[in-house]
């Protein structure tokens, strides 16, 4: 068992444990802690999968941002007796049952698939060279730059090793390889989206005077 494997199992257990802990815990504060644990472990999982940039982002955004936000939420709302709001046992049993079945189904599905076969099948429809290779091993652990480029619509990971048969007079345009598409537009959309969301959230969450009648 290599270190990688060991690390995987360790963090897999942490992740799953955190998730289960979030699900079963009745205390919001504990849930938040478990969530931090869970998400952090997930970030490690990302790293293990070679997605170093994603993993980092996960840590920063989620653990550093989102969860803190949630904790703030907990603090702002958890006043006195409302900290613990227990759900009924029947609910828990029902949810648990569904969860188990769900898990079973997903696991069955996952195990039922021959992944090598799938990658072959998928490759037929995609780019030949990269399809054969899967993800570029040279760049493992160094995805930042390609990611950044892809957000600028340059697909270094795909188009870098294309044969250089540029279109010319002799060769018609049709024969020229087509460049893959990037994510400039989604990126921009998400940016705007975020801006809007933040403005909206701050608007929603701004301090309001209680209306007297609500008392």
């Amino acid at each position: 068992m290599s270190v990688e494997t060991m690390l995987f199992w360790l963090f897999a257990i942490l992740t799953c444990g955190g998730a289960v802990s979030v699900a079963v815990s009745q205390n919001v504060v504990r849930m938040a802690f478990s969530l931090v644990l869970c998400l952090g472990s997930t970030a490690v999982m990302f790293l293990l999968l070679g997605a170093d940039f994603v993993g980092a982002t996960q840590l920063m955004v989620y653990v550093g941002g989102t969860v803190v936000l949630l904790v703030f939420g907990v603090m702002l709302t958890a006043t006195g007796p409302f900290t613990k709001i227990k759900s009924s046992g029947a609910d828990a049993i029902l949810s648990g049952l569904i969860g188990v079945i769900f898990l079973f189904i997903i696991s069955t599905t996952v195990t039922a698939v021959d992944w090598g076969d799938i990658s072959q099948k998928v490759a037929i429809g995609t780019h030949q060279k990269t399809a054969a290779r899967g993800f570029n091993p040279e760049q493992q652990g160094n995805t930042t730059r390609p990611l950044g480029l892809s957000f600028l619509s340059v697909r270094a990971d795909r188009d870098l090793n294309l044969s250089r048969n540029v279109p010319s007079v002799e060769k018609p345009v049709e024969d020229a390889p087509k460049l893959s598409s990037g994510y400039l537009l989604p990126f921009e959309i998400v940016s705007i989206h975020l801006l809007v969301v933040l403005v909206g959230a701050s608007y929603l969450a701004r301090a309001k005077r209680r209306v007297a009648t609500n008392q």
Binding site: F46, L49, G50, A51, F53, V54, T57, Q58, V61, Y62, G65, T66, L69, L70, F72, G73, W115, I118, S119, V122, A123, T126, H127, T130, A131, G134, F135, N136, T143, P146, L147, S150, F151, R155, D157, R158, Y183, P186, V190, H193, L194, V197, L198, G200, A201, S202, Y203, L204, A205
Partner: peptide, 30 residues
């Protein structure tokens, strides 16, 4: 993204998910 020809696209999507989750969290908390 690692085990299939999805490649970098998978990571991009996960990035989007993270970002959107953050946004969602902000709004949901509000």
């Amino acid at each position: 993204s690692k085990f299939t020809p999805l490649g970098l696209d998978g990571q991009v999507f996960s990035l989007f998910v993270i970002v959107l989750a953050a946004a969602e969290a902000a709004v949901a908390l509000a």
